[in-house]
Design a protein around this nucleic acid. Structure first.
Lengths: 359, 359
DNA sequence: TACAAGTGATCAAACGTTTTAGCAGAAATG
DNA sequence: CATTTCTGCTAAAACGTTTGATCACTTGTA
């Protein structure tokens, strides 16, 4: 009917396509080529801005117009198929958001991946081995560039067999298996930093409420505490180290014992314990930081920034862990010195520590 | 050399392949076919367990052996290319983990998607429109089955143009634009439930500390409060409704005003305010729940479950929002009645409310 | 014996790109 | 004028699957 000129009878109008109801079939390279009166090769060259290609400005413009008019979008699946490797990075996590922490790993990984033109494919396994295997299989089938295998708390792990079929980096966990790359928080430095906050305010009798449950964090944070004291020439006193379950109730319950130690300051294994300790100290009519200086660990925002007074603490670098994991996967960082690369835990000072009043 | 039988000269040993250093080129259908002495079509039929296909048990077994020996994995990109649509669902979020909340949306979406054989492709936009457009473009190029567009707090939004090129569902946000599907929390019911916790313990003079910043939550939670009172025949008293900035400091700061109202119970806009209020009440020597019953809203785990006493609250159903979003996207739920589908906010009772002592 | 029906497998096209080799014509060179 | 070089573009193979059509046999039936 309206066959004036060969203006490609818009293929969008063709009888109902097979796709999902109501959605037009996506526009392909071929359609663009026909509309512009060139070959698909030419369109591809224009789309990909190949500098080596010799295309006249006139043609280039015609192609661009056609692309715009038709609303063309490249089919990434086809591109991946020919190029052999996708622009995906997989992230498998054992707890995607049971904790606010894991979220930051995702966040950091996502940002960094995106920065390098990769998209994040995520799977949470909730600790279920079977789910984990399936998730990794899925990622392998989608030809991911590599896989980030992450845990929500810093711990040793073993490496699922299928993980080795791809490039991978362990995030927030590590393995003794040779040849595996890993990024973890620098617990020792963190413990040192936490203690140093107190030291630099003049405190000398500093208690440490450690966790009861074994973990790299437990050992590392203790070691950091010892190192910091040692650097100041303060002898380590095992009597100043308590242990409690690492949550609010644990911190609260440790109050009595802590007060017997006659410390002027306390460093808690984590912010949740500090929060519980706040309640315990308050019940004894003590105020923070006047009667007791307190530092935490983790920088768990909802807690640390908002208890009264706001808590000085050391942050777990989850965002950085995710980002560093991606960089390591892509081989962007120079080869790391230490085996599990250790990420710095920055100090976050608020108002729970004050200079020790002269005795 | 060891050419006993035609046991496929394992192609893995072939000269260094072009892939990433050290990684063997993936095994293809064709290689499996050659190893098993059949056509690729046959292998495909075996892999996909087509019931209509007629394959002898003997052949089937030979193929399976070859698959196992070679460690074959299907190339999902090729599958997608021929089938036209991928097994991806995209999730674009304005704050992936700035808050523990967004994490649960991801979590719910991930679980539900996985259940139906889909993988989640995520992108966070940090509220940046350009990033958002790029993220959506990426998802469209990967031919996602659909896109979940989510916000970290319940609010109206407008729909980016490119989003409409795909199926999509708004999660935790909504638009007045016709034809857009959305899932949001049922704020009104939540407000009603929160108030009912107090009512059923005999409280009659119940204050409400609302937020100062406008939001669907602000209006909805207030309306729920009114409805609950009304159902009990208690006249609404505007004097019992305070407003404060919705965080710990806001709750703390509202203490004085609250105490003037002589209420026996208070319902806070969110858990953070309740946490601040705890501090304020404590400073006045009041105890919870004896002197004042408190309920919050959000069920922010780190806070609600661990303040002293643990806080009764109403949960925001983030996990469910994510899951329901996926179901809606895939058309698994029967057509919803209301336009934005409202998700129930469940009550979580702890110890911050006690039966009112008879006067 | 002739034919239909059933069985087990293969052929080949298609999906939407990228990319190398090559072609036709124009311009430059001798 | 004959040759070379350059310019602008295209043809066609390849990537790894899926799938409808087809084929060569074998078995059953008349």
């Amino acid at each position: 009917m309206n066959s004036q000129e060969n203006s490609s009878v818009t293929p969008l109008g063709a009888a109902a396509p097979l796709g999902r109801p109501g959605r037009p079939q996506p526009v392909t390279l071929r359609q663009v080529a026909e509309a512009a009166g060139v070959s698909t090769a030419t369109v591809s060259l224009v789309v990909n801005k190949k500098k080596t290609a010799r295309i006249s400005d006139e043609t280039r413009q015609r192609v661009r117009d056609a692309i715009r008019d038709l609303g063309y979008r490249p089919n990434a699946m086809a591109q991946t198929l020919v190029s052999g490797s996708s622009r995906f990075i997989g992230l498998v996590a054992d707890a995607i958001a049971t904790t606010p922490f894991a979220g930051q790993i995702i966040h950091g990984a996502q940002d960094e991946a995106w920065k390098h033109g990769y998209a994040l494919l995520i799977a949470n396994t909730e600790g279920n081995r079977e789910l984990e295997t399936d998730a990794i299989a899925m990622m392998l089938e989608y030809k991911v560039r590599g896989i980030l295998y992450s845990t929500w708390f810093h711990r040793p792990t073993d490496i699922p067999a299928s993980l080795k079929e791809s490039d991978f980096v362990l995030v927030n966990c590590f393995s003794t298996e040779p040849g595996s790359r890993a990024v973890v928080p620098d617990e020792v430095q963190g413990g040192r930093s936490a203690t140093e906050i107190l030291l630099k305010h003049g405190h000398r009798r500093i208690a440490f409420i450690n966790a009861t449950i074994p973990a790299p964090a437990k050992d590392g944070r203790l070691q950091g505490y010892r190192e910091a004291l040692e650097a100041e020439g303060i002898p380590f006193d095992a009597g100043l180290v308590l242990e409690a379950y690492p949550d609010q109730e644990g911190g609260y319950g440790a109050t009595e014992e802590l007060l017997k130690r006659e410390a002027t300051a306390v460093y808690c294994y984590n912010d949740r314990m500090a929060m519980g300790l706040y309640d315990g100290l308050r019940e004894h009519g003590l105020s923070i930081p006047e009667d007791m200086a307190v530092v935490g660990f983790d920088n768990q925002e909802v807690i640390a920034a908002h208890v009264r007074p706001p808590l000085s603490t050391v942050a777990l670098p989850h965002y950085e862990l995710g980002a560093a994991g991606v960089r390591m996967l892509l081989g962007l960082d120079e080869a790391p010195a230490a085996d599990p690369t250790k990420i710095h835990c920055p100090t976050v000072e608020r108002n729970s520590v004050r200079a020790l009043a002269p005795a």
